[in-house]
Design a protein around this nucleic acid. Structure first.
Length: 592
RNA sequence: CGGGGCGUAGCGUAGUGGCUAGCGCGCCUGCUUUGGGAGCAGGAGACCGGGAGUUCGAAUCUCCCCGCCCCGACCA
């Protein structure tokens, strides 16, 4: 079917919408693809909905091809199953909740692990039925505290979520890899530039987890990458323990520790400045750096049962704690900073001068003390001496102090060593477009999904869950495929193959355009025909570029010479082709 | 939830106490124009986010409320 601009339900905007900050949002609005309804909630106009459905079709085809079966759940769900798994409360304010006329609780599904698990439980009960791979493409609802960036992060969004059910871990591993492969080919088809990073499985339960992150400066996830191919979400990054010389004699080869008066040095900067200013404190081999100091951060950790206990973390003074890494490392415990009242409850801890010798389960304070992986045997530190205005120098780990364990929560810097090859890592930003999890038995356990194994014994099924943000993918593709003139869709995503412009005042152009549009349409090409009369050529050219269809054909002044112009939207390349040759030539361009 | 910014026509905006709220885009009518967001003329479209107050007079000042955008916290 030919889409005619004269009647198409679209209005392109000449000016940037005031509320759009990121390119995908700006262009999708300007080109008349989407309109905002409420924060994080958008409607799709004809061009936009076609693009959306093209993306959805790729996901569906790749899923089906990989052997997954499509099902469909309601978005409106009863409370019960989410109560059983604890997520009715865990999800907190992010859950859209509502009541029916009888006062029963319902929710708009944020994700469907519970429903899938229940469904399988209701149908299957033998190991012989497994593995099972099912998926749906569904509208999800999450009442995000702050939706942003147009449809990149909405409160209503479409997600493809699939789930695998296996009888054992080996089966899960196979199912997981199967999904991983399907995702690789899906995103390849979408022409998304992405990287696969190892991620935290923590909050969802389970073990292995990887994210597919689309490269974008507007990404919300920070990940590290290395030339060796290593990539990880910063939350999931584990830096290696610092190396040391195991043969070193700590007592004879390192200076003895010594306490020093260091008044007015409550911050790391002030401490480093004072240390370098005083000749008697010189380190010898180099100036003191912030990384030579050990700062000890106090937190209050809340356990899963609600009880609280203090926790101390010792890390090099040049680094802050990365709260997302902390959260991932402590899960399911959560932590908050020490407050005045907490200091008051622990008078032995002198704010600004806290040292390792007041910390640790074996110390008098009894406070759990965990240290950064860079704090290893033989490292010497300047750190608090637990006396106001006093620090201790050359405090050596393994000689003068110990910790209760390692915790890897310090912020990651560009140029830090790579955990895999020892090279240096770079920080980059990405948009999460896919996430695959080995869930394990958390949901099957909670909802009682068991099958009989070959010995006739009941075993709990192990699950994987896998998601692709379908509506988000539309925005990601726009984000990665545009220029200063507008959108530049990959052909399979685009709302049409050809944007056919009838330019100039000659009626011949309009007639020829109509004729060619019909021919290409009958050849199976998708055509947008700009048949608007009285609209100046400049407007049509600009719209043709803004809309982003891959092939632009202009029929106008060249017609007298028997040629039409064929432009490649992406490269900007334009060639004149004789009208008679153009039918086949454009068809070839559009189909190879 | 913390910080910042902002609500005036479909979109983008001007207007800090005083005539009928101005301009650009878009829209309608007519004429002209037709290869890079045309010109002229005429027109439609705004309870200036809501409420209360101050004042002879409020888009403009005060108070309360609502909403939106951005950064952070949090999250596919």
């Amino acid at each position: 079917m030919i889409q005619r601009m004269s009647t198409l339900f679209v209005r392109t905007l000449r000016e940037d919408p005031a509320d759009a900050e990121v390119p995908s949002h700006n262009l999708l609005v300007r080109a008349g693809y989407v309109r905002r309804i409420a924060p994080g909630i958008f409607s799709w106009l004809p061009l936009g909905y076609q693009v959306f459905r093209n993306v959805e079709a790729i996901v569906r085809e790749e899923m089906n091809q990989a052997g997954f079966q499509e099902v469909h759940f309601p978005a409106l769900l009863p409370r019960e199953a989410y109560e059983t798994t604890g997520r009715w409360t865990e999800y907190g304010d992010n859950l859209f909740r509502l009541k029916d006329r009888k006062g029963n609780d319902y929710l708009l599904g944020p994700t469907h692990e519970e429903m899938f698990t229940q469904m399988v439980k209701g149908e299957f009960s033998s190991y012989r039925d497994l593995p099972l791979w099912i998926y749906q493409i569904q509208t999800k609802y999450r009442d995000e505290a702050r939706p942003r960036a147009g449809i990149l992060r909405g409160r209503e969004f479409v997600m493809k979520d699939s789930y695998s059910f296996d009888v054992d871990d080996a089966g899960l591993e196979f199912s997981y890899n199967r999904h991983r492969d399907a995702y690789v080919s899906t995103f390849k088809r979408m022409k998304v530039d992405y990287v696969i990073v190892s991620a935290m499985a923590g909050a969802m339960g389970g073990s292995r987890s990887e994210e597919f992150l689309a490269n974008s400066p507007f990404g919300e996830d920070t990940y590290v990458r290395c030339d060796c191919g290593f990539a990880a979400n910063v939350e999931a990054l584990h830096i290696p323990l610092a190396s040391f010389d195991p043969g070193i004699n700590l007592d004879t080869e390192l200076p003895a520790s010594h306490a020093e008066q260091t008044p007015e040095t409550p911050t790391i900067d002030s401490l480093v400045n004072l240390s370098n200013a005083r000749a008697d404190l010189a380190r010898g081999d180099h100036l003191w750096f912030a990384s030579d100091t050990l700062k000890n951060i106090l937190l209050i950790a809340t356990n899963a049962d609600g009880s609280e206990e203090p926790l101390a973390i010792g890390l090099p003074g040049d680094r802050e704690i990365d709260t997302r890494r902390l959260e991932a490392a402590l899960y399911p415990r959560v932590a908050r900073p020490f407050e005045e009242a907490d200091f008051a409850a622990h008078p032995a801890l002198i704010k600004g001068y806290i040292g390792p010798r007041a910390l640790g389960k074996k110390s008098t304070s009894g406070i759990e003390f965990l240290t950064d992986p860079r704090v290893v045997r033989g490292t010497r530190w300047i750190t608090g001496n637990n006396v106001k205005g006093q620090h201790v120098y050359d405090l050596v780990f393994g000689r003068d102090f110990e910790s209760d364990g390692v915790i890897d929560v310090a912020e990651v810097f560009n140029g830090d060593p790579c955990a895999s090859c020892g090279g240096t890592i770079n920080l980059a930003r990405g948009i999460e477009i896919g996430h695959i999890f080995q869930l394990g038995r958390k949901y099957a356990e909670a909802l009682g999904l068991k099958v009989l194994d070959e010995r006739g014994e009941l075993v709990t099924v192990t699950m994987g869950s896998y998601g692709i943000g379908v509506s988000r993918a539309v925005a990601v593709i726009a984000e990665q495929h545009h220029d200063d003139k507008g959108l530049v869709w990959p052909r399979e995503i685009a709302p049409a193959d050809i944007y056919l412009v009838a330019a100039g005042k000659s009626e011949d152009a309009a007639i020829k355009a109509e004729e060619l549009a019909q021919i290409w349409d009958q050849m199976g090409l998708r055509v947008i025909l700009d048949d608007r009369v009285g609209v100046s050529p400049g407007v049509k050219f600009n719209d043709s570029e803004l809309v982003g269809v891959p092939t632009i054909v202009v029929i106008g002044k060249g017609l007298e010479r028997g040629v039409i112009e064929v432009k490649d939207r992406a490269s900007g390349e334009r060639v004149d082709i004789a009208v008679d040759d153009a039918i086949a030539a454009v068809h070839r361009i559009c189909t190879n």
